[in-house]
Design a protein around this nucleic acid. Structure first.
Lengths: 215, 215
DNA sequence: GTCTATAAATGGATAGAC
DNA sequence: GTCTATCCATTTATAGAC
């Protein structure tokens, strides 16, 4: 009965003049643009144009570029991209997914790229910190056994982020040309150092004997 | 005999009007500024002011902002910061140095920060790629035994870069508040997955048996 | 609900004086 | 060897029309 669905006669049907749809279109364009170029690397004009609107509407619906970025981070980190659900196959599935998604010819639209490319801006870094801790960090830590789950989860994230960085953003030769199965094995073994504590029940403070390297 | 060393009378002695000294001062200011704010986050004016000159001289001596950045990357990656020299203590010394240098109250001037904060700009990323491959990557790979040294070296660099990212640039809680000795042990164990192949002489194609995770 | 037009600031790079 | 002054492009954000 209202004018939300059907465009009024006389209005060109470029897109419905609907606030919710417009907002969603802007957010979708923002995810793509911020992921590809980072917070400082893209202007509000660019995002607005990709969404088919003008820059003014971005500020109208999101308050500012920073407000848009905050909602973009939330939307980008909500779906699971690399870290899986099943605790038993956590390291293997994560390693395999990571290698597949960071392949040189893959699509390369991932919240880790949004993080890596937006982090030089201190305000964007703080927004990203809150987002990754709340979404991915908590998700992964909850699936770990043993002690220090928070720290170990973030060490795993450090390796994942570093792999994204070196393999796709920087694009170093050896990692780009690496055999996928070999790379997956090595990443899984590195992840298992902090993930695979299946004999240590949660809450246990017992840690493996430390082999002092300086002896 | 020439006017290179002694300032001419009447010229205020703010600094010798010497091309080499001025160029060095600009380069030093560029290392600091680019490391703290990244390639896109700092202007030529800012760097020039920190060096006590005007922006014009930067373009005069380095051609462009991009030319200045290339020489900055070379100067920043030349000294060893985290990866040590002795192959036998590679993982332990690297882990200990990394934890110390990424401590929340540390100084935080490191080529890895220069990389992390400059990488959103594609041209800067390419310059950084060449620099880190030539300096740190080759240095580390040359100290590894066994096969796939290039790939394993870059996986170690991925973990190092990711640790810098999460612990200092992003600043996640669990890694900031982690016990240094515990963090060092875990990082060393992760590094040893790709570094410690002492029973496999260089050139050996024998690899450890793969435990299939999907079974 | 969305537009055009513009304000106010900042970016890299250059011309020409001294 | 170094400066002042300026060009031109681009940015975020806002004012006001329709």
């Amino acid at each position: 009965m209202n004018s939300r669905t059907a465009p009024r006669p006389g209005v060109p049907a470029k897109r419905a003049r609907n606030a919710a749809d417009t907002k969603a279109a802007i957010l979708q364009a923002a995810v793509t643009a911020f992921t590809q170029h980072g917070y400082d690397g893209v202007g509000v004009r660019e995002i607005a144009q990709a969404a088919g609107v003008t820059a003014m509407l971005v500020n109208r619906y999101f308050g500012s570029k920073e407000g848009l970025f905050a909602q973009t981070v939330d939307a980008a980190f909500a779906p699971r991209t690399v870290v899986g659900e099943d605790p038993r196959t956590l390291s293997s599935a994560t390693a395999a997914t990571l290698v597949a998604r960071t392949a040189p010819d893959a699509e390369h639209l991932d919240p880790f790229l949004l993080m890596l490319r937006s982090v030089p801006n201190p305000r964007a870094a703080e927004i990203v910190r809150a987002g990754i801790e709340r979404h991915v960090g908590a998700h992964l830590a909850a699936r770990l056994n043993g002690a220090d789950t928070g720290e170990r989860a973030e060490l795993a994230l450090a390796l994942i982020a570093g792999t994204w960085l070196m393999r796709t953003v920087i694009g170093t030769d050896a990692l780009r040309e690496a055999t996928p199965t070999l790379l997956t094995d090595q990443l899984q073994a590195m992840l298992d150092v902090v993930i695979d504590h299946r004999d240590e029940p949660t809450g246990s403070r017992v840690r493996r004997a430390r082999t002092d390297p300086r002896a």
